[in-house]
Design a protein around this nucleic acid. Structure first.
Length: 922
RNA sequence: GCGCAUGUGGCGUAAUUGGUAGCCGCGCCAGACUUAGGAUCUGGUGUCGUGAGACGUGGGGGUUCGAGUCCCUCCAUGCGCACCA
């Protein structure tokens, strides 16, 4: 039949036409208001897409198309985050160069994406591994390298301003972020050698090179950023990670900590997202206090957020790596301390994470409490981290759980400064108790005492207020090949940036990606490349997040060879209005790109300092695995309902050879060679599988490829079904069976336009009835509202309700069908376009206008009110909307059902809420 | 352990502001058309009960004329952080 809904030919036809006509091309010049919708661009992995990946892409695509129909100039681009470790690992294992496998994977991704019918403007595509792109990643790096963060103005400024400050006043007014103890005056500065000057400047740069403890992953042969390490192992691959001191590039993101926190108030991210970022930054207010070491001219500097508890300090704990360990350990304790340090060194990061034993050793040294002269023993323990605060704490066991446990474990006596608030069994971290045993603080509420102590500490010069952050500077180099080379040449130990004219510094070809000497990357093996202009090139490369920290800007002006993005373009497109992506980038990508944007803003290259105005996190789609049960030691498989009668082993089976729960037994025999001889114990001739919801992953054979779904049901069905599954932001399982309902819906739409059996078009030019207008507009309004608030699942439902009604009303009038076709254009663009042309329209439905709702068809004069007696609905009554309380009371009391329930009694009260309900209180 | 979410039919879910709980779809049941059905269409489908009706949004309590929605408490699941002083 030629009038049937042939989605395959329809979708192919329009995808081809759209591409030929360039209908998705977006201009930077337009009289329309702009709207920028962005997807987190993918890393093009070899595995391709499964049905979970496009969820966010479909949502953003629908939203973009909707905005376009509503008269916006919509930027909706896509590209690839194509540098990264997996391509390099793959190259090492299979001998295929990263550039080649990446290109293949990108082609694959593109083909998959194209089949779903996205409205991306592919002329703006970016690939982070493309030299024309990473030229500007390198350029931005150089701007960060040439900048420092002025804490007084709270913004990035050029290094030249820093140098003139040094020349006139030294660094007295600008504490060195890389080395707090560094102090020098203008005359000192003039006396420094060039090398010394450069070393000092390096301590200020926003992109800097330094030595530091990094997360070294031996298996990956590289360092990892903090957010790439999960529970002591690498996020990718789960390999062990150790702390190692290495020369490394960093981004001084800590300087932006306050602005990153403050900026969260200006953007629409979910509360949990904001909270994750806030926690990651981990700002805390406290004090640094110097405790004199008893019998020595040394001080122990501790960081505490609770200076009010200073009289409750029963011991000190310093990190095993603390510099005082070597200096204050008493002769008597030397052996015990050495043994403890050896023990700590033997423990990997992972072991420390896994088993939290209370360990520690006494140094033999004592501190003196500055206020009451009490002697306080100094202990060493691994629970104090060298990298946070000062690497030393004052322990207050009555108020801190860990300190309490430590004191108990080592039998240290506990001073109670909070009276009844401390029960002797558990520490109580309250701030509301009244202080006792606390010298001049006695009788004060702890909360108020804090400031009193701080003032006193400052007066006496033994302590200062201090803000601390959990967040560390971000490691910004990798001992790897497949990343952006640093445009830096080392000359006499000084990092010299390449001039802009030499960018891009292209990644040289390498036949073999083996590591270089001394934990250096593969580039170190390339002698002729390494030696350049009388110096040695930086052989590390940039990490995966370099290119992704600014890609949203490149889309605005992708072809620009003179700038990363013209100010004109970024002023026009401005912030990303809607950013859709997964939560997994909460503390990585989202913080880095926010920081880069802030730096570019400070330097005057863009006019906004938050990149993403609104962020929506799509949920994950889980796999619905199918299980078969093999009788142990045999090739016989037993159906799920009978498995308890046997001893069985549970095995995953490919979900694609199972219909619902029924196994295709012939396909199963071909699934794996082992199963060729399989026999089955069935239930009524059917083999029923077990099921389990788990991650969608190859290893569970529960991966559903969008290509297969599109092939079977079409892209429009696939798009609408993904949305119909539930709220975008929610995690949910994939169930292919349910897709039939959505497919049926599209066929119903088709039947409004054409009769499949008789093979003719049904569209006529009659005037629609009021009921038909009402059904249409109700639907149009709901779809519009729901789409605007990202409630795509209810929008699909509104379509279904609307079309069911129109079908019941035998609606074939052109006036209605035109508007229906337009309203569908965002969700099911292919069928919408086909129907648009079937109605004889020109051009593309993409450029149509969203139908304006004619209110007159939606006004109601009466409503069916639920009538409740004592809150329980007993009947319904149709009542005019403008009825008064008296009229309603009269009508209600006449009603037979109401009379029955009143049993002759007078209602105490009749509640009538207009347009809602009626309730009688008896 | 701390923080944040989320708990509604057999399943995915709906109820935008405290106002008819279960829309829409899957599945299931019955029927129609059919050589056939994993096609299409029609009707039914929260639970208990023959029925009138009763019960029902994780459990318990509260506020209210009225609670899935607000408050208290407990439980379960998911996510994030986890010696951060």
């Amino acid at each position: 039949m030629f009038m049937e809904y042939n989605f395959r030919s329809i979708e192919q036809k329009w995808q081809k036409a759209w591409s030929e006509q360039g209908v998705y091309k977006v201009s930077n010049q337009s009289a329309k208001p702009k709207f920028y919708v962005l997807d987190m661009f993918p890393y093009p992995s070899g595995a391709g897409l499964h049905v979970g990946h496009p969820l966010g892409y479909i949502a953003s695509d629908i939203f973009s198309r909707h905005k376009r129909l509503k008269g916006f100039n919509v930027l909706h681009p896509m590209g690839y985050d194509s540098f990264g470790l997996p391509a390099e690992q793959y190259a090492i294992e299979h001998g295929i160069p990263p550039a080649v496998s990446t290109a293949n994977n990108i082609n694959n991704f593109r083909a998959q994406l194209d089949r779903i019918g996205f409205c991306y403007d592919w002329s703006r595509e970016v690939q982070t591994s493309d030299a024309s792109y990473y030229k500007w990643t390198q350029w931005i790096f150089l701007q960060l390298f040439d900048s420092w963060f002025n804490r007084r103005s709270q913004r990035a400024e050029r290094i030249s301003t820093l140098i003139s400050l040094f020349e006139t006043e030294g660094n007295t007014a600008h504490e060195c972020p890389g080395n707090r103890n560094l102090r020098f005056g203008a005359s000192d500065w003039k006396g420094f050698s060039e090398r010394e000057k450069q070393d000092i400047i390096m301590h200020y740069r926003l992109a800097y090179c330094g030595y530091g403890e990094v997360n070294w992953c031996e298996a990956l042969g590289t360092v990892l950023a903090n957010d790439e390490v999960i529970n002591g192992v690498s996020e990718r691959g789960g390999f062990p990670v150790v702390r190692k001191k290495l020369r490394q590039w960093y981004l001084r993101i800590t300087e932006y900590a306050d602005r990153l926190i403050a900026g969260l108030e200006t953007v629409e991210f979910s509360d949990s997202m904001k909270e994750m970022q806030t926690n990651w930054i981990g700002k805390s207010y406290g004090a640094e206090i110097d405790f004199k070491i008893d019998g020595a001219e040394r001080f122990l500097k501790v960081y505490t957020t609770r200076p009010d508890t200073i009289f409750g300090v029963d011991f000190m704990v310093i990190a095993p790596e603390h510099e005082l360990v070597a200096k204050i350990t008493s002769a008597g304790q030397q052996k015990a301390v050495d043994e403890y340090l050896a023990y700590v060194n033997s423990r990997s990061e992972r072991e420390r994470m896994a088993e939290k034993k209370i360990t520690g050793v006494f140094t033999g040294a004592y501190c003196v409490n500055p206020f009451d002269g009490k002697k306080i023993p100094v202990w060493i323990s691994e629970y104090v981290l060298a990298g946070y605060g000062t690497g030393a704490i004052m322990a207050v066991p009555c108020g801190d759980e860990r300190d309490y446990k430590f004191a108990k474990h080592f039998d240290i006596s506990i001073t109670n400064i909070i009276g009844d608030a401390f029960n002797g069994e558990d520490a109580n971290p309250t701030k509301d108790a009244i202080l006792e045993n606390s010298g001049f603080l006695n009788g004060m509420v702890m909360r108020d005492a804090t400031d009193v102590v701080l003032k006193k500490l400052e007066q006496e010069g033994i302590g200062t207020r201090r803000v601390n952050y959990k967040m560390r500077d971000a490691a910004f180099s990798r001992q790897r090949y497949w990343g952006e080379p640093f445009p830096i040449v080392w000359k006499d130990g000084i990092a010299v940036p390449l001039p802009e004219s030499e960018l891009p510094l292209t990644l040289p070809h390498l036949d073999e990606l083996k590591p270089g000497p001394e934990a250096e990357g593969p580039l170190a093996n390339l002698d002729e490349w390494k030696h350049y202009d009388g110096g040695i090139r930086e052989v590390n490369t940039m990490p995966g997040y370099a290119g992704s920290s600014w890609y949203f800007l490149r889309y605005m002006d992708p072809g620009n060879d003179a700038a990363f993005c013209s100010r004109e373009a970024s002023d026009y497109w401005n912030q990303v209005d809607l950013y859709i992506g997964g939560t997994e980038h909460a503390v990585g990508h989202l913080l880095y790109s926010r920081m880069w944007t802030k730096a570019l803003y400070d330097l005057g290259y863009v006019g906004f300092d938050e990149p993403f105005k609104r962020l929506v996190n799509q949920g994950k789609i889980g796999g619905d695995s199918r299980l078969v049960y093999r009788i142990r030691g045999t090739h016989e498989f037993v159906s799920a309902g009978l498995k308890h009668q046997y001893e069985t082993d549970e095995l995953h089976v490919d979900v694609n050879i199972v219909n619902g729960f029924e196994l295709d037994m012939n396909a199963f025999k071909k699934f794996k060679p082992d199963y060729a001889e399989a026999t089955f114990i069935t239930e009524d001739g059917k083999y029923i599988c077990g099921s389990r919801l788990e991650k969608m992953s190859k290893r569970y054979f529960n991966v559903v490829n969008p290509d297969d779904v599109v092939e079977r049901y079409g892209a429009d069905t696939f798009r609408m079904y993904e949305m119909f599954l539930g709220p975008v932001e929610q995690d949910k399982p994939w169930d292919t069976k349910g897709i039939e309902g959505v497919h049926r819906f599209l066929k119903k739409v088709w039947r409004l336009f054409a009769d499949e059996e008789k093979g003719k078009i049904l569209v006529n030019d009659h005037e629609p009835t009021e009921a038909q207008w009402k059904a249409l507009y109700k639907m149009v309004r709901k779809v519009d509202e729901d789409t605007e608030r990202f409630s795509f699942n209810t929008a699909v439902s509104a379509f279904m309700i609307g079309v069911n009604e129109l079908l019941d009303l035998k609606t074939h009038q052109r006036k209605i069908l035109e508007k229906l076709a337009v309203s569908l254009a965002a969700f099911a663009p292919h069928i919408a376009e086909e129907l648009w042309h079937l109605l004889g329209k020109e051009g593309t439905v993409l450029n149509a206008q969203w139908p304006a709702v004619e209110e007159k068809y939606l006004v109601e004069t009466a409503k069916m009110y639920p009538v409740a007696i004592n809150g329980k609905t007993r009947t319904e009554m149709s009542i005019a909307l403008d009825a008064t309380q008296e009229q309603v009371e009269g009508m209600v009391l006449q009603d037979e059902v109401v009379k029955k329930w009143l049993e002759g009694k007078q209602p105490k009260k009749i509640i009538y809420v207009k347009n809602k309900m009626i309730n009688l209180v008896v």
